[in-house]
Nucleic acid binder design. Structure first.
Lengths: 182, 182
DNA sequence: CACTAATAGTATCGAGTCGCTACTATTGCA
DNA sequence: TGCAATAGTAGCGACTCGATACTATTAGTG
């Protein structure tokens, strides 16, 4: 009798998109969680590749993230490096095998590519708004690109982070940082 | 060094949205899959509540869908009804307990509600385009609302389906049908 | 400087997803 | 009548997921 509210419609669309994407992401040897973690590690800078950062980014717990990372390490797609300065912490770097796995394009990316410029522009903006609102709602970090951060200082080749007090390579500066703030 | 392509940005946003939504959907006694299946059953008409339809809608296999539905039935959130005409097929109807579980609002719906009319309108349209493209890409059904279908005929109180050759209640006509076509 | 708290990571548990293969009924069709 | 298609399920192995409990290590405070 009653129709559906706009909120319900959107929620349903997101749910379906989620499922379709997940079905598509069972790509090769990885499941969606592993794929997401691997993809994150490939784009995060060296200060943001610890299990706890992955957990934050994937909106899960440290325990679960730890297991997922161990699974990826078992497959030699990532390699673990212990920190010198803090003996508790670990950093996972992507291996060349890991990079190769990410290169195989998913069904989703093909679909997005076929969407047309204006449509994908609108889509990107809508999604950005929604994701930011979600993050704010649950008090999560936004994880932005290093060189768009208020702590970033340009200097010669790379840059400098005023928060961590380290100099940044050109590569560091264009990757995702967990400390990102505006 | 290199930036990110628009496609990559969108794919990442969808991945994050997926994870945030999934984290939010571990609502009460259900996991995301169970929640999605229950939600679908609450909105599907009586011709569309079989395990295979759920599998189609959730973009998974019959085996997995069967297990998820058994789990929901064990919790008395849905009840199974065997068909009289086809002794192979089963229909799962939502129980009142099941409806109650769906009433608890998720974090996602709260966020969408807070988004503003214009923004949510744009979001809905973008998502619709993307989901339809995804479905087309993988050859899935669109699962539209019964009374927007080309087989639907208005008649007095409810309607009539020319494909299934059955008369429809007013309730049937506003629910999701797996046979939906334009 | 010692002691307590916070933090980083992990192991383990139980329930469940997921793709897959194999299997049983039942129905449709030629 | 017989064979193929269809509907649903069981079981397998790998894995996710939240939760809890645990070990190191580091930070902060008196």
């Amino acid at each position: 009798m009653t129709g559906f509210s706009q909120t319900q419609v959107i929620q349903d669309l997101i749910d379906r998109l989620t499922r379709l994407n997940a079905a598509e992401e069972w790509n090769g040897p990885l499941n969606p969680s592993q794929f997401a973690a691997l993809s994150y590690l490939s784009r995060a800078n060296r200060f943001s590749r610890a299990p706890s950062h992955v957990a934050d980014y994937l909106a899960t717990t440290r325990g679960t993230a730890s297991q997922t990372l161990k699974a990826l390490a078992r497959k030699d797609l990532i390699a673990e490096t212990r920190s010198d300065t803090d003996k508790r912490s670990i950093r996972y770097d992507i291996t060349s095998e890991g990079s190769d796995v990410l290169k195989t394009s998913t069904g989703l990316s093909e679909v997005i590519d076929s969407l047309g410029l204006e449509t994908s522009e609108t889509l990107a903006n809508s999604l950005k708004t929604l994701v930011l609102a979600m993050l704010q709602h649950r008090g999560g970090r936004s994880f932005g690109i290093c060189n768009t951060c208020k702590h970033h200082q340009t200097s010669g080749t790379g840059g400098y982070c005023q928060l961590l007090e380290v100099s940044l390579s050109g590569n560091d500066a264009v990757q995702i940082c967990h400390e990102h703030a505006l």
